[in-house]
Computed example of a mutant assay.
Amino acid sequence: MQAGAPQRRLAGNLTETFWGRAALRLVALVLFVGAWQLAGDDSIDLLFPTATRTLDAFVELVRDGRLPLGLLITGQALAVGFAIIVSIGVPTGVLVARFPLADRVVTPYFTFLVAIPIIALVPVVQALLGLTFAARVTVIVLFGISYVVINSAIAVRRVRTDLTEMARSFGAGRLAMMTEVVLPAALPGIMTGVRLALGQALIGMVVAELTIVGAGVGSLIAELQGRFKVAGVLAVAMTIVLVGLCLLSLVEMMERRVNRWSVQK
């Protein structure tokens, strides 16, 4: 048992590095694509397509410009929605943590958004805003904003009291206390909320595109479904997954850097 400990530590260290994680994910991707290729059937178009037929459909959609245009339109809704989530969610979380009245008034609503399936509110949003860009952005915000608010509030509440007391003893005002002490100490927790909110925003983006079909990849999927292009639908779906994974990996990398900076501080 003791002899295997160094090997386990070495394997753990390798998976903690960037290249180790990349190699592990590459191996998993190769195994996944191989299993997909074996499970697919290209005898007729309506059956589950192989990986190669899906790749051909992806190339065709990119070549004729429909997929890049759809991703651009959809990405605009995601970017605006996520910007609203962060710009409103973080200050709201700080207010909730610092002011008991704001906590009593605001927290029940965001807890409600976490507890219920947001997809149930999509028909209400559609009835109020129609098949518009604003409706898709609203759905994305509803999916993600609670996670930023709640995690930001928890992170601010967990700031060590000795830090705030020391800053107060040196004469720090409220603004300096917030910008120089509280927010830097709470930043790792806030970033956790941002990462969770991005995952939820991606889900909201897909839900909005599939239910409020006005433009973007939602209309492209609806068109391909209507023409029974199974490989095309799967190509669009896999593209959305890959884009989501890239965005989440970027936020996770930022979160790790913030955590290291916080520890050094």
Rank of each mutant, 00 (worst) to 15 (best):
G65R: 13
R66L: 09
R66Y: 10
R66I: 08
R66Q: 13
L67H: 05
L67E: 01
P68L: 09
L69Q: 15
L69R: 14
G70P: 04
G70V: 13
G70T: 09
L71S: 07
L71Y: 10
L71H: 07
L72Q: 09
L72D: 06
I73P: 03
G75H: 00
G75Y: 01
Q76C: 12
Q76I: 15
A77W: 01
L78E: 02
L78T: 00
A79G: 12
A79H: 05
V80N: 01
F82C: 04
A83S: 14
A83P: 12
I84N: 03
I84M: 10
I85T: 06
I85D: 05
V86H: 07
S87C: 13
I88C: 12
I88L: 15
I88S: 11
G89Q: 08
V90S: 09
V90E: 10
P91D: 07
T92W: 00
T92R: 00
T92L: 13
G93D: 05
G93L: 09
V94M: 14
L95W: 09
L95H: 05
L95S: 09
V96I: 12
A97Y: 00
A97P: 06
A97G: 07
R98A: 10
R98N: 07
R98Y: 09
R98E: 13
P100R: 13
P100L: 06
P100E: 04
P100D: 06
P100F: 03
L101A: 15
L101T: 15
A102G: 03
D103G: 12
D103I: 06
V105M: 08
V105E: 10
V105D: 10
V106R: 05
V106L: 15
T107S: 12
T107Y: 11
T107A: 10
T107M: 14
P108Y: 01
Y109R: 13
F110V: 00
T111W: 00
T111E: 13
F112C: 10
L113A: 00
L113V: 04
V114K: 12
V114P: 14
A115V: 11
A115E: 07
I116V: 15
I116C: 02
I116L: 05
I116G: 03
P117R: 03
I118Y: 01
I118S: 00
I118W: 02
I119E: 06
I119R: 02
A120W: 14
A120G: 14
L121W: 09
L121I: 06
L121H: 03
L121T: 03
V122Q: 02
V122W: 05
V122L: 06
P123D: 05
V124E: 10
V124Y: 14
V125S: 02
V125W: 09
V125Q: 01
Q126E: 11
A127T: 11
L128H: 05
L128M: 13
L129W: 13
L131M: 14
L131Y: 15
L131C: 05
T132K: 01
F133S: 02
A134H: 13
A135G: 11
V137M: 05
V137F: 02
T138R: 01
T138N: 02
V139N: 08
I140G: 08
I140Q: 04
L142I: 02
F143E: 10
F143G: 12
F143P: 13
F143I: 01
V148K: 03
V148L: 03
V148H: 02
V149S: 02
I150F: 09
I150Y: 08
I150R: 02
